[in-house]
Design a protein around this nucleic acid. Sequence first.
DNA 1: AAGTTCTCCTAGAACGTTCTAGATATGGTG
DNA 2: CACCATATCTAGAACGTTCTAGGAGAACTT
Lengths: 333, 333
Amino acid sequence: MPEASAQRPAKRPTLADVARASGVSVALASIVLREAEGASEESRARVKQAAADLGYRPDSRARSLRSSRSRTLGLALALGEPLHAELADALYAEADANGFEIILGATGKHRDERRVLNTLIDAGVEAVIGVFPKLPASQLAQISKQLPVISLLRKVKGLPSLITDEAAGIDQLVSHLAQLGHTRLLHLDGGSAVAAKQRRDAFLASAAKADIEARVIAAGPDDATAFEVLRGYFEQTPPAERATAVVAFNDRAALGARQAIDLAGLAVPGQISVTGYDDSEFSRLAHADLTSVRQDVAALAQAAMQAALEAPGASSTHAPQIVVRGSTGRLMA
Amino acid sequence: MPEASAQRPAKRPTLADVARASGVSVALASIVLREAEGASEESRARVKQAAADLGYRPDSRARSLRSSRSRTLGLALALGEPLHAELADALYAEADANGFEIILGATGKHRDERRVLNTLIDAGVEAVIGVFPKLPASQLAQISKQLPVISLLRKVKGLPSLITDEAAGIDQLVSHLAQLGHTRLLHLDGGSAVAAKQRRDAFLASAAKADIEARVIAAGPDDATAFEVLRGYFEQTPPAERATAVVAFNDRAALGARQAIDLAGLAVPGQISVTGYDDSEFSRLAHADLTSVRQDVAALAQAAMQAALEAPGASSTHAPQIVVRGSTGRLMA
DNA sequence: AAGTTCTCCTAGAACGTTCTAGATATGGTG
DNA sequence: CACCATATCTAGAACGTTCTAGGAGAACTT
């Protein structure tokens, strides 16, 4: 049932319209609306009034085409990742503070990182901030010759990279578990996900330092894989030899782990503890109530914005903070 | 240390560069690269070769500025909503099929819908597809005089709107529960969220039709509110008078409901059933295992794309499908 | 009185495309 | 041979901005 709606274009007002309406030249109107120097208070008022009356909004295509100052940033991330959503929100706030706009590009089943990057660049952004789990560093470096590219959550050689001190985060988890008396830990690793290698290595190092038996099983960043992998582990490992705590790659994987634990009929945390990572909404679900690690989203966002604005943006590493909830505790004898 | 700005000069090649390299005019180069008529096979080959050699990519700002055909669509949605992520993914696929690019704008704590819309429009998109829970229809209609605006999930007067038949979805849930023998239902409504009113009305209508006792409590689209509200309900309602099934506004709210149910010590589905809506990843979490309603994301996306491309886009309503899982069942006597 | 320096303003050239109108060559037709 | 149609190409004007160069006065110097 085709239902007629919008009629044909009511052309949007241009700078020339504003200039005509306020009786000044286009150039002067431009000066006023850019808040640049060189206009009298009187013309300022007149032009602004006319702009407001007409509902004028500058055309960012024309603006950026001419000035290469679009005051627009590209943000590339994955939809459906709670952490990415938090980062985006924080970056929006930063952008506001700096007078920038942000447009997003999402990676997903039907869009690879390269493609998303191209779309953003073609749209004329001044810089791109993004989470690039897979794109080779060489390609990123290549692109960064054209415009600043800032990597979030992953250390990329040749690019300003804003990351969390994964070793510190994992160490907080391992120490917490050690303190609770755990002596045999299992890590479900994140596969090719961003930061997976760092967390795995940190896990082994922290465990060794604390003189704790540690094992790593290859999994992935999703709950389904974590579930399958941990179920297999329970099937193949006699109860007496099982780890007493599972350190999952992230909250989502921890949820999958929790599922396998429930299936095995083990009590949390009485018989086994489980930890997540990211302190996302998943970790707060009552049933899961995951002990997790909170990344400093605000600091990451602020540093990313800074890196995007400054000439040769700087990398930095940010401290995470463990958040203890009900999924970890002492073993009940 | 702030001195390293020797990066800049990697200017990207322009159409003029391609033309020069292949010995033709800019106009002809444009014709070739647009696959337009009026170029010989020989020039076609030469120009394309030169473009490839130089790594030329058309500047979409200049292109859209001149032609008002940017072949770019704006998509406005909320980050962190699983359903929105699914829609975005489906729309990316549709865009591919139609040779369009998509740029995203996210609404959130720091960006209202109006602002997001403006950013996308200023970036020069040809049309905007979006989920607009709050923006008044009048404002949307106003904007749609400038360019096509398509509303997803919410029926907006004056705009092509692609929605799900909420009455049908809710009716499937209510019928399912009735068939299981439930005679007293409770609906946690979605407050001001998109489709909340439709689901509430449909709930009451379906219950009345099936001669089932029905009650609605005001809640919201989030799990925290649903939890609080349902906990209050349990506290104030004697066990004998309680509903035996809770129809939550969406999966997220159902999770909160489930939390309150656990707290009250009730067995699911033995003592009480609970349903979600959207068939999102939340519904698949093992502990929740929610009976839910799947919206036809692919059809919605396809219709939205169609509406964005055609002159006066058409509205349509799509059929949902119940997905039965373990959170609903007969009462155990 | 003639410079000099401000302040405020404007014309017109960019930016990288597409599009309109026309030029040039080629070939077919009467 | 003149004429027109077609196929291929190109110059130059848009699109809506910003930016560069400079102009007209008024207000200081000297």
